[in-house]
């Protein structure tokens, strides 16, 4: 007998990365059919999962280790120690990207010069447009908003491996 769908699988770095790829593909299909708001919503989630996975990787989690609610809460709470200006919210893509980049500085192998800053500026550009509350909206995004979110998501998928 199967567990209910929402109880299947584990929150791990591996799962987050695989889910990011899955949602990115879903978003591309929606975009091709001009279902732009849904596409933006999923492009945003794809990036969110990738930056969260990058944070936990940079914080020393093993790929298959389960990430608990307490782990996520603890991560958000070290924002000031890592030099961030504000505590990231649950879906704050810019904040989680900043956490990921700040945590990487404490690792043996740092990101190449400028790469971390690029992650943060691109995630922030996305977060100026995207919110998880888009799921409640029936509004039509502007063409430039769709293009920008798409190009940011493309960049993250292209450069995702470099973040780990």
């Amino acid at each position: 007998m199967f567990l209910p769908l929402h109880q299947r699988g584990f929150d791990t770095i591996e799962e987050f990365r695989a889910a990011a790829m899955g949602r990115y593909e879903d978003a591309r299909r929606l975009h091709r059919r001009s279902r732009d708001l849904g596409a933006i919503y999923l492009f945003g989630y794809a990036v969110e999962m990738l930056v969260k996975a990058a944070y936990f990787h940079n914080a020393g989690f093993l790929r298959a280790r389960t990430i608990s609610k307490a782990d996520r809460k603890a991560a958000a709470q070290i924002w000031s120690t890592l030099g961030l200006l504000a505590e990231p919210g649950q879906h704050d893509i810019a904040g989680w990207a900043s956490l990921a980049v700040a945590a990487r500085v404490t690792c043996a192998i740092e990101y190449p010069l400028g790469f971390g800053n690029e992650i943060v500026t691109r995630a922030s550009s996305l977060y100026l447009i995207w919110r998880e509350t888009l799921r409640y909206r029936a509004t039509q995004p502007l063409g430039r908003e769709v293009r920008e979110i798409r190009s940011i998501a493309d960049w993250f998928m292209l450069n995702g491996d470099r973040m780990f």
Partner: peptide, 22 residues
């Protein structure tokens, strides 16, 4: 030089939207 990990420029409404000006 080389020690700045994050450099971000925001307008005030953007900073509010990111939670920097609570």
């Amino acid at each position: 030089t080389g020690k700045i990990t994050i450099a971000m420029g925001l307008r005030k409404p953007e900073a509010v939207s990111m939670g920097f000006l609570p």
